[in-house]
Amino acid sequence: MLSVSNNFLRLGVLSALAGMSLGVWMGANEDFTLRTVHAHINLLGFASMMLFGLFYRVFPSAARGWLPLVHFTLSVLGFLILMPTLTLMFLQKPFFLPALIASEIMLVTSMLLFTVIVFLATARGSERVAI
């Protein structure tokens, strides 16, 4: 069974590893062309996905139903499309602009859904796990 919390946490740490590896590579080569990609991997991949995963862990009832699955799907697809298209753009290689725009729309929509999920889960009387 899909655990939204576990999957966000796993993707978060994988993103941290990828973002840090890119940072090390940039430093070793003294080529910081992809610094924006590095920042996006760390922010959208590591920070956001870890926070999503931790939120769903603290509010397990928020992880039930179709809304968290749509949130997860849009977050992951948007991230996986944005990173290569952004990379190609900064390397001044041909890239597919509609894919870049679509990924940005997916990511903003996923954050909008997460906002709804947070407000619903933190309403009075919602189940929460003590930390």
Rank of each mutant, 00 (worst) to 15 (best):
S3V: 01
S3F: 04
S3Y: 06
S3C: 07
V4E: 10
V4K: 00
S5W: 01
N6W: 01
N6C: 08
N7V: 09
F8T: 05
F8W: 08
F8V: 05
L9I: 14
R10V: 12
R10G: 12
R10N: 12
R10A: 12
L11M: 15
L11S: 10
G12S: 15
V13K: 06
L14T: 12
S15D: 15
A16Q: 11
A16Y: 06
A16I: 01
A16R: 04
A18F: 13
G19L: 07
M20L: 15
M20K: 05
M20T: 15
M20H: 07
S21L: 14
S21M: 13
S21R: 03
S21F: 14
S21A: 14
L22H: 10
G23P: 07
G23K: 03
V24Q: 04
V24F: 10
V24G: 02
W25A: 13
W25F: 09
M26Y: 02
G27T: 11
G27D: 00
G27K: 06
G27N: 11
G27Q: 05
A28D: 06
N29F: 05
N29A: 12
E30A: 12
E30R: 14
E30N: 13
D31H: 03
D31G: 03
F32M: 05
F32G: 10
F32Q: 01
T33Y: 03
T33E: 08
T33F: 07
L34C: 10
L34D: 02
R35Y: 10
R35S: 13
T36R: 11
T36M: 14
T36H: 13
A39Q: 09
A39S: 15
H40Q: 12
H40V: 14
H40Y: 09
N42G: 14
N42W: 02
L43K: 04
L44A: 09
L44F: 15
G45L: 06
F46T: 05
F46D: 03
A47S: 08
A47L: 11
S48E: 09
S48M: 11
S48C: 10
S48N: 10
M50Y: 09
M50R: 00
M50N: 09
L51W: 03
L51S: 08
L51G: 03
L51Q: 00
F52T: 01
F52K: 02
F52L: 13
F52I: 07
G53T: 05
G53M: 05
L54R: 01
F55C: 07
F55T: 01
F55L: 08
Y56I: 05
Y56D: 08
R57T: 15
V58S: 08
V58E: 08
V58I: 14
F59I: 07
F59C: 12
P60T: 05
A62D: 01
A63I: 00
A63E: 07
A63R: 01
A63N: 00
R64M: 13
R64P: 06
R64C: 07
G65W: 04
W66R: 14
W66L: 13
W66Y: 09
L67Q: 11
L67F: 09
P68W: 04
P68Q: 00
L69Y: 09
L69G: 14
L69D: 04
L69R: 15
V70E: 01
V70L: 15
V70M: 12
V70P: 01
H71A: 15
F72K: 00
T73Q: 10
T73H: 05
T73A: 14
T73I: 07
L74V: 06
L74D: 08
L74F: 12
S75W: 03
